[in-house]
Amino acid sequence: MATILEGRNLRKTYRLSRKNTVEALKGVEISIDKGEMVAIMGPSGSGKSTLMHILGLLHAPDPNHGPAPELRLAGENVAALSDNARTKIRARRMGFVFQDFNLVPTLTALENVLLACDYAGIRGKAAKDAAVEALGLVGLADRGGHKPSELSGGEQQRVAIARALVNKPEIILADEPTGNLDSDRSAEVLALFRQFNREHGQTIILVTHDSEVGEACDRVIKMRDGRIRDAGQRAGTPVMATQAVAVPLGAGHSGFDPDAASV
């Protein structure tokens, strides 16, 4: 299986004051395969979010004294790109889902999804079609005109998922996407991720505290104290086999093809 995202020597130190610093990441190595659905688990403060921000190009890893940090997205080193270049990659090649949904409160569900299209340079009818399709995929076809405040938490998170996948990104990053949802809503959201992963081969990295969520993933990466303690094992080949068959089928079925999204 091809590697889609690969990090090496990833460090991050937060400076609280001149003397006080927090070493949130102490040299992380990570490798994610294309089409994988990976959970990152670990105690609070272990550096999961920090790692997600770096993998999602929201933050750059610290330039090290020792070996330089490396972050390869589909083979290209993106560790030291300019803010503009990183923004472009976030817009076109990544999708984000956050714990507290993070929808723009003044915009309707459809407009929130369209915002992601707009930033990716897709406008007009193409954008409208893609946004409507994405809302349909998360089961909110009839809620496009609703403001976030008119939607339940589970619905808001599904809008956020639609926004994350509307541009058919190479990777979806989700930081505790079920953290604010009750167990039924969590199950729904998890099922959606599972479905996109199985049917469309969508690569998904998610941070979770919930061991049930972890178990539903192909692999669990365990973090502690700014390091990866256990990179996990890919679940048994049967999953791989179903997935390998499911990708082309799913892609043909709904026209959703993450490969086509690469810019």
Partner: peptide, 16 residues
Amino acid sequence: TREIGIKRAIGASRWR
């Protein structure tokens, strides 16, 4: 501020 954070995260450039 938060809204700006959301927009930046999902790909709005500084210029936008």
